[in-house]
């Protein structure tokens, strides 16, 4: 059986001629269902570009990307939007909540585009907020919440559609250490308890302990792949 994500010979080139930037320069990558993977590397190494391509937000200049055995390269705008809608959830570094909508409304948003009734939306969004421990803050605006809370709302918004894959771009990049650990614990729980495949971009080594696999990028290529030991668990 083919892996959940299969990337072959992917190049991504921005600009033309002199100003040409090779963000990805021939990447092969297999990611299995149910894993929690960190894409690591210095800035400019291509890790975020890879995440965007996996998230169908960006397209490779060259190469193949199969999601669940289906080729994603060459799909139209609408098909890619449908893949995002049905299979993917996104968490961003800057939270990207709609500032003028309450926590609940933000979480409901993806369900609106999926065509759920108002009652069903409210039920599911409340459940998702409950999952991230913020049911009590449903009526608050993002500006009335701490960074950690905002990111947890964003995570609730990403999982409310029960996606196959959760894509997180530097989810702890804007958070302090304590909240970062809380958010990472939440992601880990979603991965372990609910079986959501998570792919995260990060350059903070201390966050890696929550994940299972590390893919290191350098100069647009995969430098190494490793499995993370979880000593504290094996010792238990």
């Amino acid at each position: 059986m083919s892996p959940l994500i299969q990337v072959r010979g992917v190049h991504r080139v921005y600009g033309m001629g002199e100003a040409e930037v090779r963000a990805l320069d021939g990447v092969d990558l297999d990611l299995e269902k149910g894993g929690f993977t960190t894409l690591m590397g210095p800035s400019g190494s291509g890790k975020s570009t890879m995440l965007n391509i996996i998230g169908c937000l960006d397209e490779p200049t060259e190469g193949s990307y199969m999601l669940e055995g289906v080729e994603m390269v060459g799909l139209g705008r609408k098909e890619r939007a449908l893949v995002r809608r049905e299979k993917l959830g996104f968490v961003f570094q800057g939270f990207n909540l709609l500032a003028r909508s309450t926590a609940l409304e933000n979480v409901e948003l993806p369900l609106i585009y999926q065509g759920f009734s108002a009652a069903e939306r409210k039920k599911r969004a409340t459940e998702a907020l409950d999952q991230v421990g913020l049911a009590s803050r449903a009526g608050h605006l993002p500006s009335e919440m701490s960074g950690g809370q905002q990111q947890r709302v964003a995570i609730a918004r990403a999982i409310v559609t029960q996606p196959e894959i959760l894509l997180a771009d530097e989810p702890t990049g804007n958070l302090d250490t304590k909240t970062s650990h809380e958010v990472m614990q939440l992601l880990q729980r979603l991965n372990r308890d609910d079986g959501i495949t998570i792919i995260m971009v990060s350059h903070e080594p201390e966050m890696m302990v929550y994940t299972d696999f590390i893919v290191r990028f350098r100069d647009g290529r995969v430098e190494s792949t490793e499995i993370v030991d979880h000593p504290e668990e094996s010792s238990c």
Binding site: K78, R84, R85, N96, Y113, T161
Partner: peptide, 13 residues
């Protein structure tokens, strides 16, 4: 940015 967010989480054209 809002348009980008909406598109990322499933809004069609």
């Amino acid at each position: 940015r809002e348009i980008g967010i909406r598109m990322a989480i499933g809004a069609l054209e």
